[in-house]
Structures are given as C-alpha cells and as structure tokens.
Measured scan of single mutants.
Amino acid sequence: MEVRTIKVFTTVDNINLHTQVVDMSMTYGQQFGPTYLDGADVTKIKPHNSHEGKTFYVLPNDDTLRVEAFEYYHTTDPSFLGRYMSALNHTKKWKYPQVNGLTSIKWADNNCYLATALLTLQQIELKFNPPALQDAYYRARAGEAANFCALILAYCNKTVGELGDVRETMSYLFQHANLDSCKRVLNVVCKTCGQQQTTLKGVEAVMYMGTLSYEQFKKGVQIPCTCGKQATKYLVQQESPFVMMSAPPAQYELKHGTFTCASEYTGNYQCGHYKHITSKETLYCIDGALLTKSSEYKGPITDVFYKENSYTTTIK
C-alpha cells in the first residue's frame, strides 16, 4: 500500500517557510505537534488534498525554529505562539472599519479597549522592536488589523473576551517599542525636605499616572512627601515624541487643539466601556464603527496623549 502524501510549508514567522512532505494517514499533531492554519487549530486533523502548498504555523520545537521565533517575536515564552494563534482565530472574524481616516474595530468580545489602543497607536510616533509587531502594525494602518490585535493580546497575556485596560495595554506595548531616546527629568520640591531631581528613561519617561493635564504637570502637581507634608512635583525636561497622561476616570474637559487623542471610560472596574476622542479640525468621538463630532467635550476621561518633541522648564 502506497503512502499518500502532500507537500506543505511549516513556519513560526510566515517569513521562513520549511518544506514538509506530510503523510495523509496521520494527523498534523502526530507529525508536527500543535499546528495552526489561519489561526485555526488543526492539530487533530489529517492532511487533505486542499492543504497542498498551504502554510501551517507550528510551535518552535527545534533550534532553527526557536531562533526564527525569537528573532521575529522577541520572546522565548513557549506558550506565546499558541496564544497568538488562538487569538487570531477570533480577531480574523472582527470587522476593521476605516473611521475618520483611522483603522478602528467594530465592537465584539469586549474589544473596546483594543480599538482605543489601536486608534491611539496610529496617532503617536512609535516604532516597535519585534519585527512581528512592526509588520502587523503597518498592515493594521492599511486596514488589516487582525494579526496586530492578536499579537497585542498575546504580548499582554490576554484572551479574547476578557476586559482590558488601555493604560495597561499601552504599557505592555511600550515595553516592546523603541523608547531608548526618551528621557524625563522631574523635580520634587518640599518646604521641609528641599528639592530632589529624578531622571527617568524609556517607558517611565512617557507615562504618568495622577493627572490628565500635561500643562498642569509642567506647572506642578501636589504629591505627598515622605515627611508627610505636601510637596510639588513638576516637569523639568521632556525628550520624547509623545507623552501619555493618565488618571482614574473623572469628568474632564478636553479643549480642541490642546491634545492629540484621549480615552474615555464609562462604567466601573468590573464592567465598563471605552471610547476614543481625537482632536482634528474639530473633536471626534470614535466608538467602534461609530463616529460623532463636537466642538467641545466633557466626560469621564482616563488617558490623554500629547505630541511632544523637546521641553525644558522655565521655572527657576
């Protein structure tokens, strides 16, 4: 009895394709271990004539594949690729409408935090270190965002349907971005203890939790000093293409032309909904596939993004 075979390709990165001759009487799992086709788990399936010449994702289970996976995804987590594939199996079914010149995501599976993050990423200057993220990001900007969303979920250790947080998501993504040249110098002034300067680099240099107003941050924000008295913390120097200011959701007025974009969060910790506000020729609110415009805006804002380049204080 002759062994019926077909020729397929296996890959971990969709760049390096490895030619395989597979036995049609055995499952993919018996031949390769966990195997995925377009995100779908085909591990328990036997090869079919229609699979001839198709590319299958496999887990990096030998040295060659491990090197290829690390170079593309910059992670050695053995569960990463499987999590990416199972997320992709959902995100490829989502709709990605162009809204006001940006790629958004039609609401499904509690994905409003991903839509808000995706919209924000198209408006701030950011370059990702893992080629996987950078490639998928370019495709997302062009309207094909399924891979990018699935990668975000995998890097953030999230599953489809789980509630997510924009600030946490951005923080994970910033860790995989090139923020080497970003720098922030802060000064804390206390009447009792004097003053202390701190220099922050990388992710810490672009994120701040405690106030939404970048102007206020430049002037000074009140913080408790270690001595128990009130101290003032203010920005001395900022070198970065953008800054992200966050605070627990509270009524906040966004003035046209003073910011790049913002995240609105309605609801409580267990259950809520994100919308995205962007400042173009007027203010726009993007909620999944829905767009509304207004000249002014007041609502429960939790993150505001500002364009920056270089700032030095005039406070002496």
Rank of each mutant, 00 (worst) to 15 (best):
A40G: 13
Y269T: 15
H74W: 04
I223E: 09
L133W: 01
L126W: 01
A87Q: 08
E308V: 13
R4G: 13
K92S: 10
I152A: 14
K280D: 11
D303Q: 00
T302L: 00
T120D: 05
P47K: 05
L173T: 01
K307N: 13
H276N: 06
G202Y: 02
T116A: 13
K44H: 09
V58F: 06
L126V: 13
I223L: 09
S294I: 15
D62H: 07
G299M: 02
R4T: 12
N16C: 08
T278W: 04
R66D: 08
K298R: 10
C261P: 00
I315F: 15
Y265S: 00
G29R: 05
V206A: 01
E264V: 11
G257N: 09
E296F: 15
M245H: 01
L153F: 10
I15P: 06
H18S: 06
G299K: 02
G202Q: 02
D303H: 00
E2H: 08
D77F: 04
I223N: 05
F242D: 00
G272Q: 03
C182W: 09
L37Q: 11
C190Y: 02
Q98K: 11
T64Y: 13
G257E: 08
L17I: 07
I105Y: 02
P248I: 07
P300Y: 14
N178W: 03
V206K: 01
D165M: 07
A108E: 10
T10F: 12
K275D: 02
M26T: 06
V304P: 02
M207Q: 08
H256E: 14
G267N: 06
E71T: 12
L102Q: 03
G39N: 08
N178D: 11
A262G: 01
A108N: 06
P131N: 00
T282L: 11
V67P: 07
G267E: 14
Y274I: 00
A117G: 05
K183F: 10
G53L: 13
E264T: 07
A136N: 11
I105Q: 05
T199K: 08
Y265C: 00
Q251D: 13
D109T: 05
T266A: 07
Q197K: 14
E144M: 08
N147W: 08
A289V: 14
N157C: 07
F32T: 11
S310A: 13
D62W: 07
K44P: 11
P248S: 14
L153N: 00
A205M: 00
F217H: 03
T27D: 14
P60Q: 07
A145H: 06
T192D: 14
K95H: 14
L235P: 04
L151I: 02
